[in-house]
Design a protein around this nucleic acid. Sequence first.
DNA 1: ATAGGTGCAAAACCTTTGCATCCGT
DNA 2: ACGGATGCAAAGGTTTTGCACCTAT
Lengths: 143, 143
Amino acid sequence: MAGRNNLEETLAGSGYKLTRQRKAILAALATTGEHLTAEEVHQRVQMTCPELNLATVYRNLNLLADLKLIGRVDFGDGRARFEARAEHHHHLFCLRCGRVIELSSCPVQLDESLARKHRFLVTGHQFEAYGYCLDCENCKGGS
Amino acid sequence: MAGRNNLEETLAGSGYKLTRQRKAILAALATTGEHLTAEEVHQRVQMTCPELNLATVYRNLNLLADLKLIGRVDFGDGRARFEARAEHHHHLFCLRCGRVIELSSCPVQLDESLARKHRFLVTGHQFEAYGYCLDCENCKGGS
DNA sequence: ATAGGTGCAAAACCTTTGCATCCGT
DNA sequence: ACGGATGCAAAGGTTTTGCACCTAT
């Protein structure tokens, strides 16, 4: 597997230092499948790195996301979320319970005709789908 | 055309008052094809309604968007933007000059198999594409 | 040793809210 | 006249920044 080691090597290889704080942040994301806000990362990191400051969490989450070592997601609720998976992918977000389902394939069809028609070079996109997971869909009408 | 009149009637018909401020805000959006932040709406409205407060702009943009009388867009830069077009549609956003191109068709293919596979009811989605418009693409390498 | 990283506190930024007053119906 | 709407100011929440000190290399 190309796990944490790969991340750490890449980080160090880019001229960035491998600090205790960065290890803790990477570990917090790597050991959960969830999509954490900076605040949540900060909370989880308290256990292994109690003095780690929230500003440092922000600085590092942004750095790691810019380096594409982690992923940054926007569920439209006004705060950024971060996840271990760095590759391009999308999510189904439950509006009721907040559950997140990862999509393995990208449902966006950006063909060349679109680019030609609008004379626009698409370099990336962001897509998130909203709705209700099975559990929440069932009790939507109920209670 | 079902223009401003329609909007005003819908608003009044929903039990909401048709104030000078709301007229000005609707007019500001209707007379531009752009996607304005609350701050930008506030600026443009100064001409016709100098005392209109920014808080009122926020209250009304949110109300109008909730009533689906205007559209709310998120380009991922941390602030909401609003536009006259209320129907579901998407954009190409130029990362260099900020130009926005409206897409007439939705390039997202959310078929039923996806819902079935993940046992998820998709009620909406948000999608924006990023890249470079023709002008910016040309001078990207150059200067 | 040195450049980069961190902690702390303060500020920036966008947005919302409480309350007294005002205005559309 | 009534209830919703507004203006003002203050606060809320997230994220960034300045600076002195610290630390990985």
